[in-house]
Amino acid sequence: MNTFEYDANPGRVIFGSGSIKKLPDEIRRLRLSSPLLLTTPRQANLIDLLESVLSSSSPSIKPAGTFTKATMHTPYHITQEALSYVQTITADCIVSIGGGSTTGLGKAISFNTGLPHISIPTTYAGSEMTATLGETKDGHKTTRHDRKILPGTVIYDVDLTTSLPASISATSGANAIAHAVEALYAPNGNPITNLLALEGIKALAESLPQIIQDPTSQPAREEAQYGAWLCGTSLGTVRMSLHHKLCHVLGGSFNLPHSETHTIVLPHALSYNAPAIPGAMAKLASVLPGSDGDAIKGLNALLEKLRVKRGLKEFGMREEDVQSAAEIAAENPYANPRQVDLELVKELIRRCWAGEEARADF
């Protein structure tokens, strides 16, 4: 076995149906009492749920305020508005509830203020398990990595995911799989991360098609949430590569939707790196149903089952943007197992734009 280093991220996880009811106990455990409640405009009704849980279980815990403007790709101006709001209240912690947009803003506020962060995910985004913060400013998305960014507690309550539409569940789950796939060939990967990644991919690859068939299936929802947790954890311990660089560029510079972009890029980025990662390809194929030993075939088959859109043009990207996207991605690339070649990356993005099925011919 090769030598390696493994840094486990600190954090506490509360998992299970109805676990949101444990939120008051968790706030008390931290010796806190005045949370800032955080979500997006579309999920503002979840604030009512949090307030109900807090008021019925612990009259000593009273929200210091609410902020419902969390936005995709964590725009800098929204973060600044939230930080200004925090200065007007007496919050001693943050409770974020929602998907990656809410988690991202919660991480930004926590990092800038030092307030403890309790994250309650309602999708399979996985951001709650990484110490990475991606922020968008002036059309560019940048990332920073710091242990202080990581939420201190994550509450996974499957009941909060049962109303997630099947189509959003599919792309959110594929986004989680993308985290783990990239972790398999990360430059600082290790056997422990690989175990987490493969188990997470397996759980999602088996549960997501079931959710498409029956979005109310509790066992499938639990398996998907478990898988997303592991996928996020695996990415949270390694460095990101070409896949995430492309998605940061496409999301931050062209305002493409987060999970849908990850879903589309996933098999093509893997195809690009395939010649340099035969071991990771074999491991991935072993946990993808119907792969027949071919990881790219397995991913294509899974995305077909999930009935997801495969072309960035379906989300508003213009063909003339392909060149500039490739240039931005190649200008300052993340560490990657295969050299980042501008013309090949341009072809990769073109295939993503056109919605072509991934093929191993890079």
Rank of each mutant, 00 (worst) to 15 (best):
S207Y: 05
T88Q: 14
P215E: 00
A170L: 07
S101I: 10
G106T: 04
T71K: 11
Q210G: 05
E5L: 13
I149Q: 08
P275Y: 01
I201E: 01
K245I: 06
C247Q: 01
S55Y: 10
R310H: 07
N190K: 00
D92E: 03
I349T: 05
A285T: 06
C93D: 02
N9A: 09
I89E: 03
A197T: 01
L208I: 10
L49V: 15
G114Q: 07
G316M: 04
A220K: 07
G290C: 05
D214A: 13
H248I: 08
I78W: 09
M317D: 05
S253V: 02
R147L: 15
P116C: 02
D214Y: 09
T162L: 15
L115Q: 04
H140I: 08
S234I: 07
V95T: 08
A228S: 14
A326D: 00
N9K: 03
Y76W: 13
K309I: 03
R221C: 11
F315M: 12
R144E: 14
N45K: 12
S172C: 09
H117Y: 06
L83W: 14
P267R: 07
S96D: 02
R239F: 06
L270K: 02
D361S: 12
H73R: 14
G251I: 01
S84Q: 08
L288Q: 04
T39E: 01
R144S: 15
E314D: 15
E222G: 12
L195F: 10
L256P: 14
D25M: 10
T3D: 09
V238S: 02
P10I: 09
T40G: 15
A285P: 14
P257Q: 07
A70W: 03
R147Q: 15
L242G: 07
H243F: 00
A166C: 11
Y334P: 05
I212F: 02
S286R: 11
R29V: 08
Q323F: 01
S291H: 06
P41K: 10
N190Q: 00
S271D: 10
G311A: 15
P337M: 14
H268R: 02
I14N: 05
V287W: 07
K346N: 13
T113F: 13
R307W: 11
A354Q: 15
G152I: 12
T261D: 15
G99E: 07
L50M: 05
T102A: 12
P187Y: 06
A325R: 08
G152L: 13
S84C: 08
A180L: 08
L30F: 13
R338V: 10
T103K: 00
G293W: 14
Q213S: 15
S234Q: 07
A166T: 10
N336H: 01
V13Q: 02
L164Q: 15
K148F: 15
K305F: 01
L36T: 09
T142K: 14
E223V: 07
S55L: 11
K313W: 06
I97A: 00
Y185E: 01
T233Q: 13
K21M: 11
T102Q: 01
P215V: 00
K202D: 10
F315C: 07
L37K: 04
N273P: 06
G18L: 08
S169Q: 09
S286K: 11
R42V: 10
Q43L: 13
V249W: 05
P289N: 11
Y272S: 14
E331L: 11
T71D: 10
D25H: 09
T161M: 10
T90R: 10
S33G: 13
Y76R: 15
G173M: 04
G100E: 01
